[in-house]
């Protein structure tokens, strides 16, 4: 931090940087580092998407430089894009992905709001301790927790969920080998993985709701539910909306859950878009096509974020006004 202040100090001393645009210099290092690491790979990806790159030709030349110049892969123009956009599997995957975004985000918001309201309720003793325990899933590596959830949703009679169903006298379900149960399992797992982040944000927002508003509403005779809708919800709307947009983007790019659970099965029915791209790239050894899928996905998620950022005015700040 002292480094930062020293930089500030020096900059103030340089005469020609007096102009207000000098502040751009504070932002440039971050922007530069980010672009170096993300821009080249993305450009590379764009390049690959216009070739017929596959392991056999991409690595055919000598050394790394050859790989960077696409080896012996040849330019195929928009072929990969037209192939992808005319593949019915792609459109299925596209639809399932948006459905997954919609359902999982709805579930995430409901669960997180509920949990956040409970662990900030004044009647609950030890709520601080509870709050630090419930974020535990955030500290576990996703690959690990997803493997565990894979076990929870085992189709076997002794899978955890099936055992619980058994207690209530229900038949066991072949979770991962039937379409909608598998989709349901993805949603539950995604919800569990994402709730800590959402809860933290919601809890933070809830603590900022002015006490006086509640008191005033109580005096006016508003009940618990009416207070929630008229006082709490409006005050936390923006942070929760923001968290939802972020988590929607995460859902859109979910790869590990479908991949570890059943490779987007059964029969490619639940192939979320990243899994679809991965399968094209690796299982079928068509890197060019896989790259095209990834880029199409990026365009869509970019558009989604763009609309939300515009509409939610997330890039605005106090100092603009």
């Amino acid at each position: 931090m002292s480094t930062a202040s020293r930089v500030v100090h020096r900059l103030e001393e340089v005469p020609f940087l007096e102009s207000r645009d000098a502040s751009l210099l504070f932002v440039l290092p971050g922007l530069f580092v980010f672009s170096t690491f993300m821009l080249f790979p993305v450009l590379y990806l764009i390049g690959v998407s216009f070739t017929n790159a596959a392991p056999s030709n991409l690595f055919a030349g000598e050394g790394v430089f050859s790989v960077m110049t696409f080896g012996e892969a040849t330019f195929v123009g928009l072929q990969n894009y037209t192939d992808v956009l005319t593949d019915p599997e792609f459109w299925n995957s596209f639809g399932v992905t948006w459905l997954f975004v919609a359902t999982s985000v709805a579930l995430k918001i409901c669960l997180s709001l509920g949990v956040a309201l409970v662990v900030t309720n004044e009647r609950v003793r030890g709520r601080r301790l509870m709050r630090s325990f419930i974020i535990l899933p955030m500290g576990l590596p996703a690959i690990f927790t997803i493997t565990v959830w894979r076990g929870i949703f085992s189709s076997a009679e002794f899978g955890l969920v099936n055992q619980v169903l058994g207690i209530f006298g229900a038949e066991s379900v072949a979770w991962l080998s039937t379409r909608w149960p598998a989709f349901f399992a993805y949603n539950i797992t995604e919800m569990w993985l994402a709730y800590p982040f959402m809860v933290i944000i919601t809890v933070s927002a809830l603590q900022d709701v002015p006490e006086e508003l509640h008191e005033a509403a109580t005096v006016d005779g508003a009940g618990l539910i009416s207070r929630f809708f008229h006082v709490t919800l409006p005050s936390i709307k923006r942070p929760v909306l923001f968290a939802s947009i972020l988590t929607a983007a995460a859902s859109f790019q979910q790869f590990l859950i479908p991949y570890v659970f059943n490779q987007g099965g059964p029969a490619r029915a639940n192939e979320l878009i990243v899994v679809y791209g991965y399968r094209e790239a690796l299982s079928f050894s068509e890197y060019g096509r896989g790259a095209a899928v990834s880029l199409i996905a990026v365009v869509f998620i970019g558009a989604f974020m763009w609309i939300n950022v515009k509409r939610g005015k997330l890039a605005d700040g106090v100092s603009d006004e």
Binding site: G151, S154, S155, A156, E157, F158, G159, N162, S172, S177
Partner: peptide, 13 residues
């Protein structure tokens, strides 16, 4: 056999 065809649940039985 148990209902889940994958390796781990089968072998666990």
């Amino acid at each position: 056999m148990p209902n889940d065809p994958s390796y781990e649940p089968q072998e666990a039985a």
